[in-house]
């Protein structure tokens, strides 16, 4: 069973690397959205530095949403999802493995790109490690929660937009705790909010690791039968 999950993950990784267009596009989108922020709010470095953690998180969310339709859609279209569902491996495991490889191919590259983009927004260097840690802890929740939306809309033609709309409310707690952890490091002010934010973020991620595959599997069963 674990072997099935591993082979599924390695298959998805190979597909992502050889076909391209997945994580790379998300990172590119991340770069573009971050780059238009100064054009929108003006080149004031102080202002940019203050809003940098929030803007980075928001852009990361959007880049992540953009890739959700890839999660199950292509497998649904070429029929390999049917095969996975009848293969005997528990569907919860399949959904979890797919979400995990989504994180490896989009969440992780986005986190790695974040510090570089932080430079563009004049993010305080001291805040960088905290932001990275918060993003590392938070992005798995994005992939797993996103898997629910992707599974719900898998049979909808061009379900990407709908999936984004469905998933966005579930991303809000991740955004809030992620930003609070990171911006506590920027302002280095009230109380010791950083670790508390990180802990809550970790709790969200752990809960979504457990619950989201169940919901995603139920959604897949509802859609494909």
């Amino acid at each position: 069973m674990i072997r099935a999950a591993f082979s599924l993950i390695s298959r998805d990784l190979k597909l992502a690397i050889r076909l391209g267009g997945g994580g790379g596009m998300a990172v590119f989108f991340f770069l573009v959205t971050v780059a238009i922020v100064p054009l929108g709010v003006g080149p004031d470095l102080n202002l940019l530095g203050r809003i940098a953690p929030g803007m980075l998180w928001v852009s990361l969310l959007l880049s992540n949403l953009l890739t959700l339709d890839r999660l199950f859609q292509s497998d649904y279209e070429d029929g390999s999802l049917d095969f996975l569902m009848t293969s005997g491996a528990p569907l919860v495991l399949v959904a979890g493995a797919k979400a995990f490889s989504h994180w490896l191919t989009t969440g992780l590259p986005l986190v790695i790109a974040a510090p570089l983009l932080g430079l563009l927004l004049n993010l305080a260097p001291g805040a960088m490690p905290m932001l990275m840690i918060a993003m590392l802890i938070g992005t798995p929740a994005l992939s797993f929660l996103g898997a629910i939306g992707a599974a719900l809309t898998v049979s909808v033609r061009r379900g990407g937009l709908l999936a984004s709309l469905l998933v966005m409310p579930f991303y809000i707690p991740v955004l809030i705790f992620g930003v609070s952890a990171a911006s506590a490091a920027v302002t280095a002010a009230p109380g010791d909010q950083g670790p508390r934010g990180l802990m809550l973020l970790g709790a969200l991620t752990l809960a979504s690791l457990v619950l989201a595959p169940v919901a995603a599997a139920a959604a897949l069963r509802a859609n494909v039968e």
């Binding site: 629910i148 719900l152 469905l166 919901a215 139920a218 959604a219 069963r221 509802a222 859609n223």
Partner: peptide, 8 residues
């Protein structure tokens, strides 16, 4: 069924 999953 999909909507029920979403509602829950």
């Amino acid at each position: 069924r999909a909507a029920a999953v979403l509602a829950l």
